[in-house]
């Protein structure tokens, strides 16, 4: 594709919007990616890219994607939190680009947790006995 103008970008958006407006959409899914120093060093930008691409591949373009700083889990970055109606709010750890793609397919589209990456037991040393 050649160099786009802002008018091209607006036209692209208008086309897409017509398509989206024709169907029922669910704006209740939010994905939050940890993008602090630790997240970036662990590859969170590749995860961000892969998840945006897969959300578009799966045609779930109305999912809100946010970035946040360090969530305090530096040892298990990249971390991704998924908030979706009908599903428990989940923090995933060690989310490489490949795992990010699985989260989109299995959790957001399929309604099933990616169990082996769920962060269910943070920092044993600070949990009460």
């Amino acid at each position: 594709m050649g160099k786009m103008t802002l008018a091209d970008l607006k036209a692209m958006r208008d086309d897409k919007k017509k398509e989206i407006d024709r169907r029922e959409t669910d704006k209740s899914v939010t994905v939050i990616i940890g993008m602090g120093t630790c997240g970036i060093a662990a590859g969170a930008k590749a995860t961000f890219d892969a998840m945006i691409a897969e959300l578009n591949n799966c045609d779930v373009v109305d999912v809100v994607v946010k970035q946040t700083g360090c969530m305090g889990f530096c040892a298990v970055e990249p971390t991704v939190q998924v908030i979706a109606s009908g599903m428990p709010t989940t923090i995933y750890n060690r989310v490489s680009a490949e795992v990010g793609v699985r989260i989109v397919k299995e959790h957001i589209v399929g309604g099933k947790l990616v169990s082996e990456h769920v962060y269910d037991n943070p920092s044993k040393d600070i949990l009460a006995d």
Binding site: L9, I20, M51, I52, L55, N56, V60, V61, V64, V65
Partner: peptide
């Protein structure tokens, strides 16, 4: 803020 807009950007 949505995956669709971020992708177009």
């Amino acid at each position: 803020e949505t995956a669709g807009s971020i992708n177009m950007a």
